[in-house]
Design a protein around this nucleic acid. Structure first.
Lengths: 337, 337
DNA sequence: AACATTGTATAAAACGTTTTACCTCCCTAG
DNA sequence: CTAGGGAGGTAAAACGTTTTATACAATGTT
């Protein structure tokens, strides 16, 4: 109802016996006040528990200290079986606490393009967009509005756009493939998702290049992210029918869990007959039996980098970007030979 | 940098050849304008793509159309092995989309009590606090600031506080216990978490009452939420050492998965020798083998109720509260006899 | 004695809305 | 002919800040 608890800059000014300008200057370290007055005002403000109204300040400064987070799959969270949540839950948590640490507010926006947009949408200083799609309308909207944004993973179809950070997907993929090769795998199948984002693209490209380098013919499968574990189980049959590969590299933990489950149900031994790896670690990977080897992403560093870039962007400064962080392969039972 | 893309109410007014008051009135359906002018102004505003600045509006109206969400465990998300996330990830997703549907912005606040607070913190219209603890400082702060709030689950130690909604935990617990009894269970162990919140309290109370009614002696275990699956595995040993019960009722999906895993590793057959149930459904419960029966919470209805109450509160209206939603038991292999 | 200069503080404009109070016109009733 | 009253509209105040421009001493300079 009443937004602020009464206590405004005017009250502080009156109590301290100075003008409101003086208060503003003292609290923001501007202007030309004597050290004494400055100190005095600060004390008074503190003991009154004064806190500048974010709206008024934002209106005047035209910057708010708040960033929006668009989870490019959050819509899916509305359904019963959320797709790809493993990664995102981590991401949201990390983003929230890191934003806090930097004194930023974090607003969650499921979909920027559905109208009407929530009130504060266009008042944010900037946005973080996770895994934008090809021709993502969210990106287009931000672009059109001139709102600064950074993306988690490069923007497909926009190789020139520099303001992104992410784990080095190509490096991760190579790491996985090398690991499997060391384990004796010759034919390796890749199971990717269907979202047209950089994550899927880049893994696929790396995989195809790797196959080409070795002169082996690729075994590529697509499976919708939202198909989840069950999708993986079903896909296992198709994979087996096509001839059992030495290893299966699934980009999501859920798919990996499903595929492994499906293969084992058919009597295919893991890791004896075929190995299984997940491109992003998740509870599914960890809790499968045998535990599935997986790439552990690095949301802490990635989010840090994203916020660095975004803050620089908002401040109108130059940002070192893009920035790649390192993910680590966690070998587990499913590739232990 | 520049917050809004230039286009203000003044521009619209000029273009439409009217005063800014007229524009405001036309767009908000107030004042006494002729239908014609109103229509005209609306058209102009639309084609200019005008959207009122949320900050200016908020400043004037002293209400913003934005609510904060405090996940009373979100700190934990910063760690590698997040505790209790299964429930919360769902909750965040649902909250975000329902807020959107109601035209509200959702701000994520990890911890309201750490200073300095992010800018918009005290500008929110109201807050949703999930599973507040006993003597929760977040609740105290909101109370002191006079900011409206609702809680997901009652506030422990504040039986008088009405503004909450949640699944009917007592009913859920009874449902589970009855299910186990039907399956032939006589001695049932309860594994609860350590957080002093209503969820744990209420399940425990119901369980104890149920035992008392039957004259059986309770077998109560506490296990920290963050102990997760491994904690469950370890606890399984203790439970078995104390004498294998006919069923184990774990409040979290992770604990249930761990306990079942631990029991089976000791050669205790599930469901033949003992049954396992989880108080909140999760991927762990679904993907264990055998699949663990679990109570499927109802975040959609709960969030709906919470927003209803909060919106009423903010509007200064009377809200029907508290409100209970129904959770459903999903019987699965782990209790199939 | 007149004039810069410096140090400290403030008045007032601005940010973009909403809302309150008022204005003007025209019509009708007295 | 005038008072009263709607219909249709606007000017200006307000929201709580920040910022720009200005005021006023006191001090130093020619």
């Amino acid at each position: 109802m009443a937004r602020t608890q009464g206590i405004t800059i005017k009250d502080v000014a009156r109590r301290a016996g100075v003008s409101i300008t003086a208060v503003s200057h003292a609290l923001n370290g501007k202007g030309t006040l004597s050290a004494a007055t400055r100190e005095h005002i600060r004390t008074v403000a503190d003991e009154m528990g004064y806190e500048a109204d974010a709206l008024a300040r934002g209106l005047r400064r035209s910057t708010m200290g708040a960033v929006g987070l668009v989870l490019r799959s959050l819509d899916a969270l509305g359904d019963y079986a959320p797709a790809g949540v493993d990664v995102f839950e981590r991401f949201v948590g990390v983003a929230a606490s890191q934003a806090l640490a930097r004194g930023l507010s974090l607003m969650l926006v499921p979909d920027l393009t559905r109208t009407p947009v929530p009130p504060l949408t266009f008042s944010m200083d900037g946005y973080i967009v996770t895994n934008p799609h090809l021709d993502d309308p969210v990106v287009a909207l931000l672009e059109k509005r001139g709102i600064p944004y950074v993306t988690y993973g490069r923007v497909p179809g926009r190789p020139d756009f520099p303001h992104w950070a992410s784990e080095d997907d190509a490096a991760s993929a190579r790491q996985v493939l090398a690991h499997l090769e060391t384990g004796g795998a010759r034919t390796i199948a890749l199971v990717r998702g269907t979202d047209p984002n950089a994550w899927n693209h880049e893994h696929q490209d790396t995989y195809l290049a790797w196959c080409a380098e070795r002169g082996t013919s690729p075994r590529l499968y697509e499976l919708a992210e939202r198909a989840g574990v069950e999708g993986g189980v079903e896909l296992a049959d198709r994979i087996a029918d096509d001839g059992i590969p030495d290893a299966v590299f699934c980009l999501t933990g859920r798919h990996a869990a499903g595929v492994q489950q499906g293969l084992m149900a058919r009597g295919v031994g893991v890791p004896e007959r075929t190995m299984v790896v997940a491109g992003s670690d998740s509870e599914h990977a960890r809790n499968s039996r045998p535990a599935i080897s997986a790439v552990e992403l690095n949301p802490v560093e990635s989010v840090g980098a994203l916020l660095d870039i975004l803050q620089a962007l908002v401040a109108g400064a130059e940002a070192r970007s893009p920035r790649l962080t390192r993910a680590r392969l966690r070998p587990r039972g499913a590739t232990r030979r």
